Simulated assay, not measured.
Amino acid sequence: MQINEKARQELFNEIDGISADNLNKKPSDDQWSIKQIVEHLYLMEGAIAKTIQGKLENGEVVNAEIKPIEAAINREVKIDAPKYTKPSNDFATLEELKKKLNMTHQKLLNIEEEADKEVLKVKGFPHPVFGQMSLKQWIPFVGYHEMRHILQIKEVKEKLGL
């Protein structure tokens, strides 16, 4: 969870102090607001944590090879967000967003701490780009995915003049 902790700290450093109006402001009609990016992050983290938990209990042994998950940071490779992680247009405050981020982060941390390490290595599920990934690799993938979107937040802040 080291990359996850680093990413979360960087995320909070990047969004702390942004007003609710600026959080919810889109740089253009076809781009996400900072709030939407953050919502996508906790939706994704929550979905991955839930899937890992389910696979720990009922998943198959896949013995997936180690994938170059660090590549998830590369913003030049465009990937459409899965439907269940697409953010809403609902207004949210920084406090609300941080509360949800903390909840999903704690859930993933609990899984990582409590799960059988061998089961995390041998069981898995497929990623749309990397293919079959072990549950063990899905945990740091969340951190790399977050780093990708921190770069996006920086881009949005620049476009909004923040």
Score class of each variant (00 low, 15 high):
Ala7Thr: 00
Glu10Ala: 15
Glu10Tyr: 12
Ile15Leu: 04
Asp16Leu: 01
Gly17Trp: 07
Ala20Ser: 14
Asp21Glu: 14
Leu23Gly: 04
Leu23Ile: 09
Asn24His: 09
Lys25Ala: 07
Lys26His: 03
Ile37Gly: 00
Gly46Arg: 01
Ile48Arg: 00
Ile52Gln: 00
Leu56Asn: 04
Asn58Met: 04
Asn58Arg: 06
Val61His: 06
Val62Lys: 11
Asn63Leu: 08
Ala64Ser: 14
Ala64Asp: 03
Pro68Ile: 03
Glu70Ser: 14
Ala72Val: 15
Ala72Ile: 14
Ile73Leu: 13
Ile73Cys: 05
Asn74Gly: 09
Asn74Thr: 07
Arg75Lys: 11
Glu76Asn: 15
Lys78Gly: 06
Ile79Lys: 12
Ala81His: 06
Pro82Met: 05
Thr85Asn: 12
Pro87Gly: 09
Asn89His: 13
Phe91Lys: 11
Thr93Phe: 05
Asn102Thr: 08
Met103Phe: 14
Thr104Arg: 05
Thr104Ser: 12
Gln106Gly: 10
Leu109Gln: 15
Leu109His: 15
Glu112Ile: 02
Glu113Arg: 09
Glu114Arg: 03
Leu120Thr: 04
Lys121Asp: 09
Val122His: 10
Phe125Leu: 12
Pro126Ala: 15
Pro128Ala: 06
Gly131Ile: 11
Gln137Trp: 08
Ile139Met: 12
Gly143Ala: 07
Gly143Thr: 08
His145Phe: 13
Glu146Ala: 11
Arg148Cys: 01
Gln152Trp: 05
Gln152Pro: 08
Lys154Met: 05
Glu155Pro: 02
